[in-house]
Nucleic acid binder design. Structure first.
Lengths: 338, 338
DNA sequence: AGAAAAAATGTAAACGTTTACATTCATACG
DNA sequence: CGTATGAATGTAAACGTTTACATTTTTTCT
């Protein structure tokens, strides 16, 4: 037999209102009564029905996370950290993924309008501009993660792609004195990719190295394009001394291509990546890369979202934050590493 | 202004009951009225409040997925397929992960008792027996994924670990005539690991190869233990001709160790893995491994769970299914591969 | 002790649906 | 044309909470 608040109230000899109060914050309920109620709650193993609660409070205590169609392994860590932080606040996490049946925008719209969540976390490095309008129109708060551009009305948090790329290239130049530095880019239109490319260009400029378009290759963040990018670069007349792969997956591709073609890293060519995925620490030589604070990204996304939702901060100005990254030195850049 | 069913009813000049009926199945509502209502629904952009609906129908139309603490990249695909299948049935997916704050059993219990989901998918290869009792006691249906043992009352679906391992080893023996075949095991107590080990042993036995404990190494499914396992095996007086890593991550570790120690795969030693992770297709040589139908696993888990929940099949006998795997031949076993 | 103030509790109305049952309306039949 | 029948719709009671407001109980003060 399902037990509800009435059963508890009956057994405790009080009204349901008192039971409710005893359980929530316990504002103005006599300590003794409260104690008694809590004991009975324990005894009956009563768990308030969250659905009824949601209906009454007009709040689901659930946040939605939109999953892109294709996601890297890091996304799992992202979700994990989101859920852990939500849990700490007694909130829950509903996921909604885009797939063959619906694209990411449709997913977002459905989720926001569904009434099942009070806020949404959207990681969408390939975000189109139309999305920002959609979000502005909706009353459901959204926090953007790793998106390009800055929107006055929408909370946003991201990783410092620009600085990361800049630091990698600067390291190549300042520490190793490389001049011919190639890059394997991420996909066109991808925000992370574009910012990283921009960091690459800035570093070159800063150190007065002319941009050489034969050293700039398009990739799309997967292993295969790393293979192709590396091969293309190394088949040229004048080879690069170093290659910056805009993410670690492509760097892995570069490693494989190097093996295939008989090049030694870093002696024949130096490599660096971006993301610091799990695997990169095991590559030989250990990959020099940029560590991305993915856990922090998830935690902060939840924090800001909850702030926006609960603190009646609904109209305060948008929060914008760029998380710092960290250069991780391995052996692939030419440094000694043990 | 939030619009609800009353507004729609008012504008359509009917009662809310009729609106509700027009929207759900539309049993016995005059075609003309229905049409009119639907038009107004469209016009006002009315979306029924799912919370109220849940309360009234006593069903959340949401399934819960328990995330283990540490998960491989394949878990992302698993979730994706779950969500896609759920979506096709107009259901939703709530995730709940175990982490530093609570272990997997607590997570499961909380989720089942929470009233936020109508059923739960639990992938727990390291499941303790106590879990099955907990599940039996609860009225929330649960489907176990990749767990060991067979429980008469609980739906279960898994991958054919035994056969996969058997096929790998059989391939080593029959095609390549290897006799000394080592294995790097997964963690103790892990169901996948134990079944794979068991398949390994059976194949040896079938082909009358004596079990040699110096060829059996303990690992724990991560890259590092692959490195260690490989190193240990190859540092022995008499080296193995082939090594079966119980998952691809450890196989990757083996590749790295081979590189470090100067062994060529497959000439000096053959390697095979299990899982067919994204990366394995890019390894050089391509890793010979067992493909696990992770998407199918997710889809079927949802299907059976929904069946159990909705079809009043609540007490029909438990569904038990083992999904077939597929041997993927790469170059690492000694086969030619291009 | 009695009045006023404060604290504790109770009552009942939300929250937005679904659905059993009651009622009205249309149709066909004698 | 009235009536029986079935189809279409309406009414109101769930579903299980929270919470504004009303009421009762306790405390404090003179």
């Amino acid at each position: 037999m399902k037990i509800d608040i009435h059963k508890v109230a009956l057994k405790a000899g009080v009204s349901i209102a008192t039971v409710s109060r005893a359980l929530n914050g316990g504002e103005l309920v006599k300590p003794k009564t409260k104690e008694k109620i809590l004991k009975i709650v324990e005894e009956l193993n009563y768990i308030p029905n969250p659905i009824a609660r949601s209906l009454s409070k007009q709040s689901t205590e659930t946040i939605g996370v939109v999953l892109p169609d294709l996601v890297g392994e890091f996304f799992m860590d992202f979700i994990h950290s989101i859920d852990e932080e939500a849990y700490k606040n007694n909130w829950h996490v509903l996921i909604s993924s885009s797939h063959s049946q619906r694209n990411i925008i449709e997913t977002l719209i459905e989720l926001m309008g569904s009434g099942r969540v009070d806020g949404v976390i959207l990681m969408a490095p390939q975000m189109q501009n139309e999305v920002s309008e959609i979000i502005q129109k909706s009353k459901t708060p959204v926090i953007l993660v790793n998106t390009c551009g800055e929107f006055s009305k929408i909370d946003q948090i991201k990783v410092d792609n620009y600085k990361g790329a800049y630091e990698v290239v600067e390291h190549f130049i300042k520490v190793h004195n490389y001049k011919r530095i190639g890059i394997i880019n991420g996909p066109k239109g991808n925000c992370d990719a574009e910012e990283r490319f921009s960091g690459y260009l800035s570093a070159l400029k800063k150190y007065k190295i002319a941009k050489d378009s034969s050293l700039i290759i398009n990739g799309n963040f997967d292993v295969e394009s790393g293979v192709i990018g590396f091969t293309t670069l190394m088949n040229q007349e004048i080879r690069p001394e170093a290659i910056f792969a805009a993410n670690d997956m492509m760097a892995v591709g570069a490693y494989e291509a190097a093996k295939e073609l008989g090049f030694k890293i870093p002696n024949d060519v130096a490599i660096a990546g971006f993301d610091d995925i799990y695997l990169s620490q095991f590559l030989l030589p250990r990959l020099t890369t940029i560590h991305v604070p993915i856990t922090e990204l998830g935690i902060k996304a939840v924090k800001f979202l909850l702030n926006r939702i609960t603190k009646k901060k609904r109209n305060s100005e948008a929060h914008f934050e760029v998380l710092p990254i960290e250069l991780v030195i391995g052996g692939s850049c030419g440094c000694r590493y043990s």
